[in-house]
Simulated assay, not measured.
Amino acid sequence: MSTQTDQFLEEGPAAHQSPNELLAALQLPRQGRLYSLSVPRFTGMPVFGAHPPFDVSMYRTPAGLRGDGVKPWGEVNEVNLGYMAEVMSGTSHSGAHVDALAHMTIGDDDHWYGGAAAGTCLGDRGPTVGDGSKIPPFIRRGILLDVPGYRGINALPANEPVNAEELQAVARHQGVTITPGDVVMIRTGYMSEWPDPERMARHVTAGPDISAARWLLEQGVVAAGSDTETFEVQPAPDPGSPANPQPVHTLLLIENAIYLFESIYLEDLARDRVYEFLFVALPIKVKGATGSMLDPVAII
């Protein structure tokens, strides 16, 4: 029996990995070394300006259980066993994360990838099409393009665009080739100043411009990411006509279902000049979410 959502596309090319492609990715590691691509989340951590703050607060504590007279195990507790449980609040776009296809909308009808629009596919509990529960796992060949490393600096200045020509030059300099099915990470150096907001502000929102996005699309990537909170350069140096403040998100996420990773920690990979690796990211399947927090890893 068909449902209302059957008429909409909910998956990008990353969801269609063949068994042979998966096995090829798993054969990449040779050294058995693992790199974490995230930093710890904490109350008050830096997030994109329009997002709600991330917060952790305690819901249950040993003292609170006693004070409330709560006895989870009944009357028998001679050893004074207790427990702690917390409440986390914030957006799925806190820290290292991936955007769901329903994250960005455009047009008078507020539509997103696959034909879904707010008028029919957005409820009080989030989008019903292309939401966080539909994001696939990522077990792919990963490529790092270290732009400040190529330029010989620690981090790009604030609002600095990276175009297609430079990404190609970085790839040649590093001796890597982008192939269909890859996940490409673009380092700007922004996270090198984490979590100092004043120092991070000197490098905020550098990133790829629309020409770089077109090049990534031409290479057949299934996802791309960066160490910034916006992935693409802001403000857009080439917003087009009519003006679009985020043309890269529009081209990749809304029009082509290329998943976007943001706030990915790339400093250790860059330090060790690791440019090719097995990239593993397993999203949390949450219905109605517009993305998923991650703790991705690179394995070599």
Results as ranks from 00 to 15, higher is better:
82 G>E: 04
108 D>A: 15
166 E>K: 03
144 L>T: 00
116 A>Q: 03
116 A>M: 07
115 G>V: 07
127 P>M: 01
109 D>R: 13
131 D>N: 14
140 R>P: 05
150 Y>Q: 04
81 L>N: 14
103 H>L: 14
136 P>A: 07
129 V>F: 03
149 G>W: 09
146 D>V: 09
83 Y>D: 15
107 G>V: 12
97 H>N: 05
122 L>G: 02
122 L>R: 06
96 A>C: 01
144 L>I: 02
126 G>P: 03
161 P>R: 15
98 V>S: 05
148 P>I: 07
148 P>M: 05
161 P>S: 14
114 G>S: 09
87 V>G: 07
89 S>Y: 01
95 G>H: 02
111 H>I: 09
112 W>N: 12
145 L>V: 11
147 V>N: 04
140 R>Y: 02
104 M>H: 11
155 A>K: 08
88 M>I: 15
132 G>W: 08
154 N>K: 14
161 P>V: 13
159 N>L: 13
132 G>Y: 08
93 H>E: 11
110 D>W: 13
111 H>C: 14
155 A>Y: 02
96 A>V: 00
139 I>S: 11
133 S>K: 02
130 G>Y: 03
112 W>L: 10
162 V>N: 08
158 A>F: 05
135 I>G: 02
116 A>V: 08
109 D>W: 10
154 N>M: 11
147 V>W: 00
124 D>W: 06
135 I>P: 00
146 D>F: 00
107 G>P: 14
123 G>Q: 07
145 L>N: 12
102 A>I: 00
100 A>C: 07
137 P>L: 13
165 E>Q: 13
96 A>H: 00
142 G>T: 09
158 A>S: 12
120 T>W: 15
102 A>F: 02
87 V>M: 12
95 G>D: 05
144 L>Q: 01
127 P>I: 04
91 T>K: 14
151 R>H: 13
117 A>L: 14
149 G>N: 07
139 I>P: 10
128 T>N: 02
151 R>G: 08
118 A>K: 12
141 R>I: 10
101 L>V: 09
152 G>M: 05
134 K>F: 07
150 Y>G: 02
106 I>P: 06
132 G>D: 06
159 N>G: 11
101 L>K: 09
153 I>D: 08
91 T>M: 14
165 E>C: 09
137 P>M: 12
138 F>I: 09
93 H>R: 08
129 V>L: 08
148 P>E: 04
160 E>I: 01
89 S>D: 08
103 H>P: 07
161 P>T: 14
153 I>Y: 06
134 K>T: 10
128 T>A: 04
155 A>D: 00
113 Y>V: 03
137 P>E: 14
83 Y>V: 13
99 D>G: 09
85 A>E: 12
100 A>E: 03
94 S>I: 00
86 E>P: 04
148 P>D: 05
127 P>A: 04
93 H>P: 02
121 C>V: 06
164 A>K: 09
135 I>E: 03
117 A>H: 15
120 T>I: 15
126 G>T: 04
92 S>Q: 10
105 T>L: 01
165 E>A: 14
156 L>P: 01
162 V>K: 08
123 G>D: 04
115 G>A: 09
117 A>V: 13
135 I>V: 06
97 H>M: 04
151 R>M: 12
157 P>N: 10
